[in-house]
């Protein structure tokens, strides 16, 4: 069974569900603005926007709008991969998913794509207007690049997310608790709200292991215009791709090991 069929199934599932949850759709549209307002208000208590520009080299509003949008895109993918097995177990659909002749790795790769497409379109209502406001017509170009890179950043995280998902589910116990600890850690280490070049060294090392953190850095550098050298962007994107490829066999093994464990222990109905 091919990737297209799985993608079609997931698209039907996500779109039908989302269209019925209008409030969720509405919240998703507002989310980049809510996050930006939250961060800027919190940030204002600790320093001025001017200080932020001095330290980071970017205006706070476009920085946080872009960062929020990237976070939504990347964590959306991670969440889909992290939570779907738990959700399926809760709904009682897991036995039927496992009993389908679907390649489990292809399934986990296809899982986040439909939601990612929706999230990327949300960039039209968040990143695009803000970028135009700040950078004029050039902002359109930057917004499109940000949206594309957000999608790319999200995709390169899929294989590592599979590694983590498999490992957590194999470890057993109350997986959702572990996920609730890992998610915020990932959010910090991605460097979306706190640029990597400002992180402590240990955090930087950890951050380098996350493929999308390099994409996030590329976007931040593009916004800060710290380099006119396109090679640096390509190096960052190349490292992200290489890491994603490196994690692919581990992710695949991890997911298959989880399934094997499930089959040994039995899937609750």
């Amino acid at each position: 069974m091919g990737f297209i069929e799985i993608l079609y199934a997931e698209t039907r599932f996500v779109w039908a569900g989302l269209l019925r949850r209008k409030s969720a759709l509405f919240t998703a549209l507002l989310y980049p603005y809510i996050l930006t307002a939250f961060v800027i208000l919190v940030g204002s208590t600790m320093g001025s926007p001017q200080l932020f520009v001095v330290r980071v080299g970017i205006e706070p509003v476009p920085f946080f709008i872009v960062s929020s949008f990237m976070l939504m895109s990347i964590m959306g993918v991670v969440d889909d991969i992290f939570w779907k097995p738990l959700f399926d177990e809760f709904m009682g659909t897991l036995p039927y998913v496992i009993a389908s002749p679907v390649d489990r790795v292809l399934y986990f790769v296809a899982l986040p794509l439909p939601r990612l497409i929706i999230v990327l379109f949300i960039g039209l209502s968040s990143v695009l207007p803000v970028m135009i406001m700040y950078y004029g017509v050039a902002g359109v170009y930057e917004a499109v690049v940000v949206m594309l890179l957000a999608g790319f950043g999200a995709l390169v995280f899929a294989t590592l997310a599979m590694c983590i998902t498999g490992a957590l589910y194999i470890a057993g116990g109350e997986t959702w608790r572990s996920l609730n600890v890992i998610r915020p850690l990932l959010m910090v280490l991605l460097g979306v709200f706190y640029p990597r070049w400002l992180m402590p060294l240990t955090a930087q090392y950890l951050s380098w292991a996350l493929p999308p953190s390099h994409v996030v850095e590329a976007v931040h550098r593009m916004l800060a215009e710290t380099t006119g050298n396109a090679v640096q962007y390509f190096v960052l994107l190349g490292v992200a791709t290489a890491l994603a490829i490196l994690y692919a066999p581990i992710g695949s093994t991890s997911i298959r090991a989880w399934e094997r464990k499930k089959l040994r222990e039995g899937i609750s109905v």
Partner: peptide
């Protein structure tokens, strides 16, 4: 095989 394990659940509620 066609499988029916539990009549109470096994589908997505919002679909």
């Amino acid at each position: 095989i066609g499988l029916l394990l539990s009549v109470e659940k096994g589908f997505y509620g919002k679909l």
